[in-house]
Write a protein that binds this DNA or RNA. Structure first.
Length: 338
DNA sequence: AAGCACACCAACCGCGTCCTC
DNA sequence: GGAGGACGCGGTTGGTGTGCT
């Protein structure tokens, strides 16, 4: 025979906690410690289920809970940990002191998830989405681009100069288009674009990429779908990589992610001037297109030429360039239909 | 000012694992 | 060893606040 049942008595209160109930719970735990949740409500004089008491304590009353908005560093850490651990909110929470799994889960669902979707990142896989639903944003950006050029600075809701707004909208639109083209053709890996500073220009102005997904140190494949982290390699160079599903593996993985995250923070600090998140490579012509076939190259260069015209063009004639770009994009990235 | 839509988040629910008997 | 409850976790819901029309 097991233990007596918990929470099966009818008449236990549900719903929001009152200040009096909070007081009773805090008072009891401060005097007696947590003990067993099953018997705690009775001893504390609460008409609540033990489960409800545990939740209230863990998510709200615990004295070490950190309140307030998540910092950018915390947000970045959550993203990186989620890319390795998935929806293991409790495990993620162990790396964010003072934050509860519930709070992180809520923040993910209400903020981060939406941000990633808007950027064309699949929040589940942390890879660029292969569908084109996020292209809905293109029409909105296009509308904003056109609208802001006709707006005076005084009526701009963002309080920005109209041309600045226009450029921001244009740049974001270009980024989206680049993502689409990269997705479609798999010729240029621009990495996940949601990290500030994940694209670095070296001295030769060639695009280099920092990928936020945890990777095997030896063969640089993502850990999430790589044998290095799904089983121990027979190769001696991989012998220290452990097996997923174990605490050890999760610790190893998250430690690597934290290390990685610190590197990213360093990169971000070095690129303090970079405000916009991972827009296009500053010089698309010099990006590494070594795998391109000739046809694609030709189409790509035409597209870049159209972009150049577009970016240099400040008057209303740019509308024709938009059409040109969109046409070129749709032909070079064939699956897209406008 | 009222009504509506959306965002946020505390709390509940259900399930899997652990633990006790 | 097995039955069954406790615990912890992740998914979901519903109440409340806020902004927009």
């Amino acid at each position: 025979m097991g233990r007596p049942p918990c929470c099966n008595e009818s008449g236990v209160k549900k719903g929001p906690w009152t200040p009096e109930e909070d007081e009773k719970l805090m008072d009891y735990i401060s005097k007696h410690g947590r003990g067993t949740w099953r018997t705690l409500p009775m001893h504390a004089g609460l008409n609540r289920c033990g489960k409800s008491c545990r939740l209230r304590w863990e998510n709200y009353l615990r004295p070490d809970i950190k309140r307030g908005r998540f910092t950018e560093e915390e947000e970045q850490l959550i993203i990186n940990l989620h890319s390795v651990l998935g929806n293991k909110w409790a495990k993620i929470a162990t790396h964010l002191p003072g934050r509860t799994d519930n709070e992180i889960k809520n923040y993910w669902n209400t903020n981060i998830r939406k941000k990633l979707l808007q950027m064309g990142i699949d929040p589940e896989t942390h890879k660029q989405r292969t569908d084109f639903n996020h292209l809905v944003n293109l029409s909105q950006l296009l509308g904003m681009s056109n609208l802001s050029t006709s707006m005076s600075p005084w009526t701009n809701p963002l309080g920005l100069q109209a041309d600045v707004t226009t450029q921001l909208a244009k740049l974001q639109l270009l980024q989206n288009m680049l993502q689409v083209m990269n997705n479609t053709n798999s010729l240029v890996n621009v990495g996940n674009p949601y990290l500030l500073g994940n694209q670095i220009l070296n001295g030769t102005n060639t695009l280099q990429v920092e990928d936020p997904v945890l990777r095997c140190k030896e063969c640089v494949k993502p850990a999430s779908n790589h044998p290095c982290l799904s089983q121990t390699h027979s190769d001696s160079s991989h012998q220290n990589i452990s097996i997923p599903g174990t605490e050890k593996e999760n610790e190893t993985a998250t430690q690597e992610v934290i290390g990685y995250n610190q590197n990213i923070v360093t990169i971000q600090q070095n690129q303090a001037e970079n405000i916009l998140p991972a827009l296009v490579a500053s010089c698309p012509r010099t990006s590494t297109f070594s795998q391109m076939d000739n046809n694609y190259k030709a189409a790509q260069m035409s597209t870049f030429e159209a972009w150049e015209k577009f970016l240099l063009d400040d008057d209303e004639t740019s509308g024709s360039h938009w059409k040109e770009i969109l046409d070129l994009t749709s032909t070079s990235a064939s699956p897209i239909s406008w």
